[in-house]
């Protein structure tokens, strides 16, 4: 169960995607998401889906891993489908029974919304985090957002918070697993009973989990203070990020592909209005 949550997990590797400058990855991902929400028709989606498949193939993390990342949001996808199918007005009615009507717009909307969310999750939460270590990712974020420091946005502090949060996701999951096993050994039952009983059954997990999270937070804070950490001012980096020739090529190619997707969206729309 908890094993399915791969959020924030990093698979070390040596592929071209792993080696890309993390800032570039971040920027391309943001542009990609923008393109996803600008496009509607089949042609742009074939282009956007295709380039993502290519990126996954190049990253060598395996399609199995990537689709596994979709598992936790399966429910979200199902709900999205239902809402779009039943609550879209307009278009031709293709099915009608009592108060339920399904229109072709609804089906069309549902299809693209699900595709959009799936591609978005694959691009960000799986491909990006699988191939970029959390430290690289937050370093990149800090660097990309650093102009905001001029208007007093605490970029470094935010990045540090994110680093720590990402660092502790696997730890906390592991800990949850351990505590659950321990309580199961004492006969705790998380699988049967109504909603209230199940919610109550979580108490023996949540309390030890919170206590240990606070303990860890305190230990970490102490350790950081012992090493004289006092914010971003004048702090230098161990890993200095540098744009390689490869990165310029990737940037150019990606921009071209995304531009093509958006262009094709304008030239061959299928006359469907989307929210």
């Amino acid at each position: 169960m908890l094993k399915d949550i791969t959020l924030g997990q990093f698979f070390p590797g040596n592929s071209i995607i792993h080696k890309m400058d993390p800032r570039l990855k971040l920027v391309i991902t943001v542009l990609y998401i923008t393109a996803l929400f600008m496009c509607h028709g089949p042609v742009p989606y074939i282009i956007l889906g295709g380039i993502l498949i290519l990126a996954v193939a190049l990253s060598k993390v395996g399609f199995r891993q990537v689709t596994r990342g979709l598992k936790p949001i399966l429910i979200l996808l199902v709900i999205t489908t239902l809402f779009n199918v039943f609550y879209t007005n307009g278009g031709q009615v293709i099915f009608s029974w009592k108060f339920i009507t399904i229109t072709d717009y609804g089906v069309y909307n549902a299809f693209y919304m699900v595709l959009r969310i799936a591609l978005l999750i694959i691009a960000t939460f799986t491909l990006l985090t699988y191939t970029t270590s959390p430290i690289m990712l937050t370093d990149a974020l800090e660097s990309v957002l650093s102009p905001l420091k001029k208007i007093k946005v605490p970029v470094h502090e935010l990045a540090m918070m994110m680093t720590i949060a990402l660092r502790f996701i696997p730890t906390l999951l592991e800990e949850t697993d351990k505590i659950m096993s321990a309580q199961k050994s004492r006969g705790a039952d998380f699988e049967s009973g109504g909603l209230i009983r199940r919610a109550k059954a979580l108490i023996p997990i949540l309390i030890p989990l919170f206590i240990s999270a606070f303990r860890r937070a305190e230990e970490l804070a102490t350790a950081m203070e012992c090493r004289c950490y006092n914010g971003g001012e004048g702090r230098t980096k161990l890993r200095v990020m540098k744009f390689a020739m490869r990165d310029y090529v990737i940037l150019f190619v990606s921009l071209a592909v995304l531009a093509l997707a958006i262009y094709s969206d304008y030239t061959c729309t299928f006359g469907v209005i989307l929210p």
């Binding site: 004492r186 039952d189 309390i207 030890p208």
Partner: peptide
């Protein structure tokens, strides 16, 4: 009965008595 490594991190009840009683209650 399985006592995990560092089992003290699984304690959660308000009193020692109630914590020990968790297993028998189940």
């Amino acid at each position: 009965g399985l006592v995990f490594q560092y089992p003290e991190y699984q304690l959660f009840e308000e009193t020692v008595e109630r914590d020990i009683a968790f297993g028998p209650t189940n």
